[in-house]
């Protein structure tokens, strides 16, 4: 199956793109997608685990199973403001 991946804020910079398409095996989960992305793009290593993951704009747990055509967004906590 194929899913659309969106990156936000610092993970977009680390990924070098704001979006990409990822090919996954059937019954893959959000955690599987995360592992694949971190392997394919070493600069993402260790970053996606700190992100909230949203499937079709709803935040989900890493165990959530994906379906063909899903849109998965990785959103890091953004601080900033004070310093």
């Amino acid at each position: 199956m194929k899913v659309r991946v969106l990156f936000f804020a610092s993970v977009a910079d680390a990924a070098g793109t704001r979006s990409l398409d990822a090919e996954l095996g059937n019954r893959a989960t959000v955690a599987d997608l995360r592992r694949k992305l971190e392997k394919d793009r070493p600069r993402l290593a260790g970053r996606l685990g700190k992100c909230a993951a949203a499937v079709n704009t709803v935040v989900v747990s890493p165990a959530r199973a994906l379906a063909d055509g899903d849109e998965v967004a990785f959103l890091p906590p953004v601080s900033g403001g004070a310093e």
């Binding site: 936000f8 804020a9 610092s10 906590p77 953004v78 403001g81």
Partner: peptide, 10 residues
């Protein structure tokens, strides 16, 4: 609650 860095905000 909010955050901003570079050109991104939430």
């Amino acid at each position: 609650i909010g955050g901003v860095v570079r050109w991104s905000g939430q």
